[in-house]
Structures are given as structure tokens and as C-alpha cells.
């Protein structure tokens, strides 16, 4: 019990705890500094997440706009160039029946060797086998095929649980050393929604074809 309630004041007086000596005072200031650093770090985490959400929102809005304008490939390129940092992109269709990739669209990439190829043994193959996007930073691979040398990421495009294709991101911009946390999140978003947008685009093309 702290207060007596009889008007005579508290039975136990609240005391301000003073530092016992100079060292304690120093320790307290260090603690305060430590807490401030922690607070700043947490704030930075929340802000980073906020900026990521803004980017995801913008990417989503751009894909929706692309459905109306019929420029889904351009939208994917724009998102990757502006928000991730690559201007070497190719989109491939995948045919599970014959395990063949065929080039659907590209930007900034030499495509002679990329028109059509079998799954092979490299990153494309692993993406198909595992049903998961592949990143050179995260899953280095020894058996890269000649056209995979400059490949940074192989993003799978799933349509109704089947792999319908991949977005291949080759070289990053010179000022971009590697993919970062927010990039992986954006690519995860593209994995699902670029696939849906491309499926929409194909249906629309089929419907409007003479």
C-alpha cells in the first residue's frame, strides 16, 4: 500500500533514485543513447516498410493501367527498371508438355540464343523443377547455361498453379550492386500479379484477334 488514505500523506514516500556514483550516471547516459539508437532503428524499419508498400501500390496501379492500355510487357519493364534497377529483361512462355521456353518479349537483351530453348540444366530448369523463383545471390548455381551467364533472377509466372512462363532479369544497372530486401518483395508481387496481367492480356488479344 502506498497511500494511507487518512490525509496524512503516503506511508511510503516516493523517492527519486539518484545515481550512487559518477559511473552509474555515465552508464545511464549510455543506456539512454542505446535506447535512442534502438528507437531510430525501429523507426527506420517501419519507414522502409512504408516505402515498400508505396512501391507495391504503384506497381499494382501500373499493372491495372496496363490492362486498359494493353501494354503489360512495358509495365513489367517499367516496374523493374524504375523500382528494382535493371534494363535487361525478357519474358518467356513455358510449355510443360515439351519443357520448352519460348521468348515472348524482351528489352535490352541480345535475344539470338533466347528465341526458343529446352529447360536445360541451369537456373531456368531449377525454377521449373522447384516451382520457385531463382536468384543468383541467394541460390548460386554451378551449371549455368551460356545464355544464363548474366542472369540475376528467374521469376516464375504461375497461372492456375502451373508455370506459364518466367521473367528473366539479366544485368542490373551499373549503380545497382545486388538485389535488396525490398526488391525480393516486389519480385514476389510480380510473380503472382504479372502472371495474372499477362494471362488477361493474352485472353484479350485472343478475343480481339480477327
Amino acid at each position: 500500500m502506498i497511500g494511507t488514505g487518512d490525509g496524512n500523506g503516503p506511508s511510503i514516500k516516493a523517492r527519486r533514485i539518484e545515481p550512487a556514483d559518477g559511473n552509474s550516471s555515465m552508464f545511464s547516459r549510455t543506456d539512454e543513447l542505446h535506447l535512442r539508437v534502438q528507437r531510430l532503428s525501429l523507426r527506420e524499419q517501419i519507414e522502409r516498410n512504408h516505402f515498400l508498400l508505396v512501391r507495391l501500390n504503384a506497381a499494382s496501379a501500373r499493372l491495372i493501367e496496363a490492362l486498359d492500355h494493353g501494354d503489360v510487357f512495358d509495365a513489367i519493364a517499367e516496374i523493374i527498371a524504375n523500382l528494382i534497377g535493371s534494363e535487361e529483361i525478357a519474358v518467356f512462355d513455358y510449355c510443360p508438355a515439351n519443357q520448352n521456353f519460348s521468348l515472348a518479349w524482351s528489352w535490352g537483351v541480345e535475344t539470338d540464343a533466347l528465341q526458343s530453348f529446352l529447360c536445360g540444366a541451369g537456373m531456368f530448369n531449377r525454377a521449373v523443377q522447384q516451382g520457385a523463383s531463382q536468384f543468383r545471390d541467394r541460390q548460386p548455381i554451378a551449371t549455368l547455361l551460356p545464355y544464363e551467364k548474366n542472369l540475376t533472377a528467374c521469376i516464375i509466372l504461375k497461372s492456375s498453379r502451373e508455370i506459364a512462363g518466367v521473367i528473366a532479369i539479366f544485368g542490373l544497372l551499373p549503380q545497382k550492386n545486388n538485389l535488396e530486401w525490398a526488391d525480393y518483395e516486389l519480385l514476389k508481387f510480380l510473380e503472382t500479379y504479372a502472371a495474372v496481367a499477362l494471362q488477361f492480356h493474352r485472353l484479350q488479344t485472343k478475343q480481339t484477334a480477327p
Binding site: V54, A59, E65, E78, A81, N82
Partner: peptide, 16 residues
């Protein structure tokens, strides 16, 4: 000329 870039800037500036 990129709609995505304009949109990101608009969102960030308007919020922050």
C-alpha cells in the same frame, strides 16, 4: 515518362 515513377513520387510526397 514512366507512370510508375510519377506515381511513386506522388504517393511519397503526398504522404510525407
Amino acid at each position: 515518362d514512366s507512370y510508375t515513377a510519377r506515381l511513386v513520387n506522388r504517393m511519397i510526397f503526398s504522404q510525407k
